[in-house]
Computed example of a mutant assay.
Amino acid sequence: MNTHPFESVIVDTGENPKTCVIWLHGLGADGHDFEPIVPEMQLPPGKPVRFIFPHAPVRRVTINNGMPMRAWYDFRELAPGEGEDHGQVGEGVAAVQTLLAEARRHYDTVLLGGFSQGGAMALLTGLVEGPAPDAVFGLSTYLPDAAKAGLQLSPRAAGLPIFMGHGSFDPVIPPDFGRHTSQALRAMGVTLQWHEYPMPHSVCPDEIRDLSRWMGPLIQA
Score class of each variant (00 low, 15 high):
Val203Thr: 15
Val61Arg: 00
Ile208Phe: 14
Glu35Gln: 14
Pro205Lys: 09
His166Gln: 08
Ala95Met: 07
Pro155Met: 14
Phe6Glu: 04
Pro48Phe: 03
Pro171Asn: 03
Pro175Lys: 06
Asp12Tyr: 01
Leu124Trp: 05
Glu77Ile: 01
Gly31Leu: 06
Gly46Trp: 08
Ala94Arg: 15
Val61Cys: 00
Met215Cys: 15
Asp145Asn: 15
Leu123Asn: 01
Glu207Ile: 05
Ala184Phe: 15
His201Lys: 02
Leu100His: 06
Ile10Glu: 05
Met188Tyr: 10
Thr109Tyr: 13
Asn64Val: 00
Met41Phe: 13
Pro144Met: 06
Gly92Asp: 13
Phe75Ser: 00
Gly216Pro: 07
Arg50Lys: 05
Leu160Lys: 05
Glu196Trp: 10
His166Arg: 04
Pro36His: 12
Glu102Tyr: 00
His195Arg: 15
Leu151Gly: 00
Pro171Gln: 01
Leu112Ala: 08
His180Phe: 15
His201Tyr: 01
Ser212Arg: 02
Ala157Thr: 12
Ser182Met: 14
Phe34Thr: 02
Val110Lys: 04
Lys148Leu: 10
Leu27Tyr: 00
Thr13Lys: 01
Tyr197Lys: 02
Val96Asp: 08
His4Cys: 11
Asp12Thr: 05
Gln183Gly: 13
Arg186Trp: 08
Pro161His: 02
Ser140Phe: 06
Gly178Tyr: 05
His195Trp: 08
Phe177Tyr: 13
Ala79Met: 14
Tyr107Leu: 10
Thr191Leu: 15
Gln152Cys: 13
Pro171Met: 03
Gly138Thr: 11
Arg50Trp: 01
Gly66Asp: 00
Gln97Tyr: 08
Val58Asn: 08
Pro36Thr: 07
Ala157Lys: 13
Tyr73Lys: 02
Asp74Ala: 01
Leu124Ala: 08
Tyr197Glu: 00
Ser8Thr: 14
Pro57Met: 06
Leu127Ser: 11
Ala122Asp: 04
Pro174Trp: 01
Thr98Arg: 14
Asp170Arg: 05
Glu207Cys: 12
Gly138Met: 10
Pro205Ala: 08
His4Thr: 12
Arg70Ala: 10
Ala157Cys: 14
Gly31Glu: 09
Leu211Pro: 07
Asp74Tyr: 02
Asn65Lys: 05
Pro198Lys: 11
Met69Asn: 00
Arg76Met: 04
Pro133Arg: 10
Thr109Cys: 12
Tyr197Cys: 02
Glu91Gln: 12
Gln193Trp: 10
Pro155Gly: 15
Arg60Leu: 01
His201Trp: 03
Val203Tyr: 15
Asp145Ser: 15
Pro36Asp: 08
Val190Asp: 07
Pro175Cys: 04
Phe137Cys: 13
Ile37Asn: 05
Pro48Leu: 07
Leu139His: 03
Val136Asp: 11
